[in-house]
Write a protein that binds this DNA or RNA. Structure first.
Length: 300
DNA sequence: TTGCAGGGGTCAA
DNA sequence: TTGACCCCTGCA
C-alpha cells in the first residue's frame, strides 16, 4: 500500500493513506463500540484496548498505541493491507454502486473479534443502534475489565466463560430484553466449545454459516454479519431493512424474498458482496430517506 | 399527558 | 407464513 507509518508520542500516524475515513468506517453499522468525540475523533474499545482515531488532511492519527500493537493488532483490525481502491474500481462498474461509493468512499470492513460480534449481533435483532450500543456497553461495564484512558474508564468486552457464568436475568438487566436467554445459551455453548467459534474462519463460508446457525438468536442475517465483520467471509451479504429497501429500489422487484435478494447480490457481486453491502447500507441510510427508497424505481 | 407503533430479526407454531 | 417478543423513542 502506498502510505507511510510514523511513530509519534503515544501514537501512530499514517501519512497519505487512501480509502480511510473514520466516520465511514466506524459509523456504518459494523461496530457498536465507538464514540464520536467533540474534536470529531472516534474513541473505541476493541481487542481489550482503547484507541482513538482522528483524521487530519490525508493523515490518520491513532492515539494510545505503539508500533508493536499497531503492527500486531490494529493493522489487521482496520484491514490496512487491503487495496480498497481496487475493490471500488471493480464495484463501480455497477452504476448504483458507483453512486453509493461516493457517499462512503472511506469505508473499510473491520476484522473484529468473533465472540464480541456474535453477541453484539444477537442483540441487534429487532433493535435500534443506540439501544444495541447501550446493551453492549452495559454488558462490558458489568463483566469486562477496566481500562483507563484520557481521564475516563472504559471496559473491555467480557470473555465467553464470564458470560456463561452469568444468569439470563443478569444479562437481561443490561437492556438486552428477550435476547437475554439467547445470549446466555450462546455463551454456554461457546464456553463448552459445542461450536469452535474461533475455528470458523478456516472452514469455508457455507460450513461456518451452518455452525453459526446453531446458536439461538442467530438467523440468516445475523450469521452473515458475523461472517463478514469478524471472519473475513466477503461473500456474505447481510440483508437488513436498509439493504432490503435499497435493493428493492434499484435491483429487484418488491415481492422478492430476503433469501433471493442475498442470492441476487452474491451472483452479481461475487467475492465482493460484503463490500458492496456496506457501501449500499451506508448510502441508503445516510443519503436517502426511507420514503424515497420505498417508492418503486423505474430503472430496474 | 398518554398511548401506540415500530425498530440492523429470530423463534415457534 | 405469521405473530410475539424487551424496551425505548418519536409522534399523534
Amino acid at each position: 500500500m502506498n502510505y507511510k507509518i510514523v511513530e509519534k508520542d503515544k501514537g501512530i500516524v499514517i501519512e497519505g493513506i487512501k480509502d480511510f475515513v473514520p466516520e465511514h468506517i466506524l459509523d456504518c453499522g459494523q461496530s457498536f463500540r465507538w464514540v464520536l468525540e467533540d474534536d470529531k475523533s472516534y474513541t473505541g474499545v476493541a481487542m481489550g484496548r482503547v484507541i482513538n482515531v482522528n483524521m487530519e488532511g490525508n493523515n490518520v492519527i491513532f492515539n494510545n498505541t505503539d508500533l508493536d500493537d499497531f503492527k500486531n493488532i490494529w493493522y489487521d483490525y482496520f484491514d490496512l493491507g487491503r487495496d480498497y481502491g481496487k475493490i471500488k474500481e471493480k464495484l463501480s462498474k455497477d452504476d448504483v454502486l458507483k453512486e453509493a461509493i461516493k457517499y462512503g468512499e472511506g469505508i473499510r470492513i473491520l476484522n473484529q473479534d468473533e465472540w464480541e460480534i456474535l453477541i453484539s449481533f444477537i442483540i441487534s435483532a429487532n433493535n435500534r443502534i443506540p439501544m444495541i450500543k447501550r446493551a453492549v456497553n452495559n454488558i462490558s461495564q458489568r463483566w469486562g475489565k477496566h481500562i483507563f484512558y484520557n481521564g475516563k474508564t472504559y471496559y473491555s468486552f467480557p470473555k465467553p466463560d464470564v458470560l456463561a457464568n452469568a444468569t439470563a436475568d443478569e444479562i437481561k438487566e443490561c437492556g438486552t430484553g428477550f435476547r437475554a436467554k439467547y445470549i446466555s445459551e450462546t455463551a454456554k455453548m461457546v464456553s463448552k466449545r459445542e461450536v469452535d467459534l474461533y475455528g470458523l474462519k478456516d472452514i469455508g463460508y457455507e460450513n461456518a454459516r451452518q455452525e453459526l446457525l446453531k446458536f439461538p438468536g442467530v438467523g440468516p442475517k445475523v450469521s452473515d454479519c458475523i461472517l463478514l465483520f469478524s471472519m473475513g467471509y466477503y461473500k456474505a451479504f447481510p440483508v437488513d431493512v436498509w439493504v432490503k429497501r435499497v435493493m428493492r429500489h434499484f435491483y429487484v422487484a418488491e415481492d422478492v424474498s430476503l433469501k433471493k435478494i442475498e442470492e441476487f447480490a452474491q451472483d452479481r457481486f461475487k467475492d465482493l458482496s460484503g463490500f458492496a453491502q456496506e457501501y449500499l447500507f451506508y448510502y441508503a441510510r445516510n443519503s436517502m430517506g426511507k420514503d424515497e427508497l420505498e417508492q418503486m424505481s423505474t430503472n430496474k
